[in-house]
Every structure is written in C-alpha cells, then in structure tokens.
Design a binder for these strands. Structure first.
Length: 392
RNA sequence: GCUGGGGUAGCAAAGUGGUCAACUGCACCUGACUGUAAAUCAGGCGGCUUAUGCCUUCGUAGGUUCGAGUCCUUCCCCCAGCA
C-alpha cells in the first residue's frame, strides 16, 4: 500500500510504500539479485549500505532451484537470508531478451565459438501465444510454458512482497504493429493476472498482502502508452510499472514517455520505471514522477571494473557522475581511493583501498576486487536515493 | 668434451619450401554494458597507416632456391644424459 506524502519543488514525489516486510520510503532503488543474490554481496552488506528492497527474478528462480523448493524451505526471504522486501520481475523481460537473437552480436572475425556460450544459441528461445510464453530453458533446453496465472503462482510461492505480471516487452526495433500487439496482449494478460491474483489472495491469511503491479507498454507511442495505462488503471493495480524503455537507449529517447507516465498514472500509487538506469537517468526520472527503480548497471559494471564517481556540483554540467574503468593503465599506481567523499567500505575514510590495489585485485581475478567495486557502486546508488529523498 | 634435443613476436607455444606479419593461450591496451543466459563480450596487440597497401621480422653469419621461419653450412647460447 502506497502513501503519497508530498511533491518536492523539483518534482520528486515523496512517499511510503508498505509491504509485508516493512515500510519503504520512496523514491528507492532496488539492487538486482536475479537468482536470489545480489552478485558478490552478502545480505548484511546490503543492509549496512541501506538497501531497502531487492529485486529478484521469477524466471530464473523457477528454473533453478524451483519455486516449490523455495516454498518448502520457508520462502525466498528465508532462503536468501534477506528480511526486507523483495520484488520479483515476471520473466516478461526474458521473453524479450531471450527472444532476441543474441548470436548476432558475434563478430564475423571471431573464429572460435565457445561451447556453452549463451551467444552460441542460434534460435530464439521463446514463442509467444495468446495463452502465454513458451520458452526453452537456457540451462538445459527443456520446454516450459509461462502463463499469466502461472507467473502469479510462482511469485506467490516464492512469497515475495511485490509481484510483476507477465508482460510483452518488445524490442526497441519492433514495428508499430508489433508494439501495438504487445500492448494488447499485455493488457489481456494483465487482466488474467489480476483476476487470478485476486482469487488467490482473497483467501490469504497474510496481514499485509502482496502487491501486484500493472506494466505499461507501448514503445515510444504516447497514444499507445496512454491507452495501455488507462486500461491497466481500470484493473486497479496496487502500483504501476513502466516497461520497455530501458532498451535500445542509444537510439531512442524515453523521456517523453516517462513524463507522460508521470502525468497520467494515479498519484496515489507507486510508479516503477523498470530497468532504469544510470544515476543521471534516475535523477531525471524521479523529477518526472517515478518512484521505483532497478538496474543491473551498478553491479554489472562493477564486475566489469567500472565504478561511478560523483562529480563536484560545479563540474556536473552534463553528467553528475563519471564512470571510471579501474582496469585502465593510469590507475595501476594510483594511490587514491575511488571517491574521497564516498562512504562505502572500499572508500571509507582512514581505511579505504587505493585504486591501485583494487585494480591489482581485478587484474588478478581476485573476488575481493569485484566485491569492492560492487559495494562502491551500490553505495553510490543508495546514497543518491537518500539524497533525492532529502533534496528539498 | 661427447651424444641427443632446442633457440619463433612480452611470456608460453604452433608452424618443417610458397596460401606466414606468422595458429593458439596468457599478459598488455581500449571500448561496450540500463526489468542480468554477463567476474561477460568486442576490438587492438612488429612499424607506418585509409588500406585487399608498403616496410622490417622467426638466435647469428652465409648459402641453396623463382621463393626460406621452414633445406645446407658457420658461429653463439640453452637443456638432458654421459664423461
């Protein structure tokens, strides 16, 4: 249950979201723990940094270890040792990303095709029908069917706090017709998900019930987005997600749609901009009325040796953050911490680690290297959200 | 000293007459990454460069050949075994 508190002068909505695992001040960022783990971090580290909620993934947990096992072992929170709220994505994104033929990115110059590489799969792994999504497991190739109802069931079995319905997330290159079809199917699936969820929940003895979002699709077409949002609003979801925008960003400008969503989605429901994004993107999006964010960038970039460094306000004309690749040779002998003003474990005053040391760890494939960069990046994101909530 | 094996680009290691500026791995350099099939992927990695282009390379110095990293000879060095 979301409570809208106030709108700051800069447009940021201040609110509070109550879930079965506690109340969350909004806006907030969700570190991504796809398979029930925010890669390389421990739950207590996330708590220490002030992470309030994590995102996990229905698709991945269904395939492994299976939602039934998680249920038998007491639910996802207990399973992964995290007592704060959890949101699960539905697998809708995987329908998109696994549907893309990623082998296209293979360079013709690459002579060696690694076996078991995810890039080596030539055929699309998914097939969409009215009933749902048929897909092949990326683990073993086995066939599975996700229906809107099934996806709700899995998430309820996992015992998460916020559920996403199965949606169709078209590629940024999709034709107008494909986007329109995605919207229509997303709406029909949303209705089925809503009905099934209600049926399952009405018998629930939980004091605070899980929350179900509707996901707005529609590409970059304002009319389609508006139509989708209106249809979903009729179904009275607990909150609304804006999907399909964090793809093909280099060729598409999402801000018009984000602004529109900020204007037409109900003020008294939380808005989740899925998959966004860079710190700069998040700053803009909060000002356009978005409340919730998730992104793999802080954790993935960290594992790929890149860290966010906050720029001084007077230097932040364009971007508020600089992305620094610690594997660049200039950091080999750099005795300074990543960011002097950062409060993370890697930078902490008095006992911070030098860029030279972290660079050495990364070059040596020492796990501590990417743990430190991950802790740093997540701290930056979480600190950013704290600052945005207090930016009046 | 004798016998045998070997000296290839930063390292390791393919290559035994042309398709070799030279396979491959590592290291190194740079880039990408946005609801995670990602501790991943891509490109570069002798020099000049826009190059399917030119120049200089495979211990050393010569030679054979239309053509040599690849064959022959000299010398230098390394390794193993025997003295």
């Amino acid at each position: 249950m979301y409570k809208f508190i106030k709108k700051l002068d800069n447009g940021i909505r201040i609110g509070e979201l109550e879930t079965a695992h506690g109340k969350l001040p909004t806006p907030f960022f969700m570190p991504v723990g796809t398979v029930g783990s925010v890669k390389s971090t421990a739950p207590w580290e996330l708590e220490e940094m002030g992470a309030q909620i994590l995102l996990s993934n229905t698709y991945h947990l269904y395939l492994r270890p299976g939602e039934q096992l998680v249920k038998e072992l007491g639910g996802l929170h207990k399973f992964m040792g995290w007592n704060r709220p959890i949101l699960t994505d539905s697998g809708g994104y995987q329908v998109f990303s696994l549907g893309e033929n990623k082998s296209k990115v293979k360079s013709p110059k690459s002579k060696v095709i690694k076996e078991n590489s995810h890039l080596n799969l030539k055929e699309s792994l998914v097939k969409i029908s009215e009933d749902g999504v048929e897909f092949k497991s990326f683990l073993d190739g086995s066939k599975h069917l996700f229906t809107p109802e099934k996806v709700i069931d899995i998430q309820l079995d996992l015992g998460v706090d916020i559920l996403m319905p199965l949606d169709v997330c078209p590629s940024g290159k999709a034709s107008a017709r494909e986007v329109k079809e995605a919207v229509e199917l997303t709406i029909r699936w949303a209705k089925r998900a809503r009905e099934h969820f209600n049926k399952r929940i009405q018998n629930s003895e939980l004091r605070i019930k899980p929350l179900l979002h509707g996901i707005v699709q529609g590409g970059l077409d304002p009319e389609l987005r508006k139509y989708c949002a209106e249809e979903l609003i009729k179904l009275d979801f607990d909150g609304y997600s804006v999907g399909g925008l964090a793809v093909d960003l280099e060729t598409r400008d999402m801000w018009g749609i984000v602004k529109l969503m900020g204007e037409i989605l109900p003020e008294n429901k939380q808005r989740y901009l899925m998959g966004v994004g860079t710190p700069d993107n998040i700053i803009i999006a909060t000002k356009l009325g978005m409340d919730m964010f998730d992104c793999v960038l802080p954790t993935r970039l960290a594992r790929h040796a890149s860290v966010f460094v906050k720029r001084h306000p007077e230097q932040s004309e364009g971007s508020h953050y600089q992305l620094v690749n610690l594997l660049n040779s200039k950091y080999r002998a750099d005795g300074g911490v990543i960011d002097q003003k950062c409060g993370c474990r890697a930078c902490q005053e008095g006992r911070g680690f030098s860029k030279a040391y972290i660079s050495h760890l990364l070059r040596s494939n020492e796990i501590l290297g990417l743990r430190l960069t991950t802790l740093h990046n997540l701290w930056q994101y979480l600190e950013l959200m704290r600052n945005l909530r207090n930016s009046d």
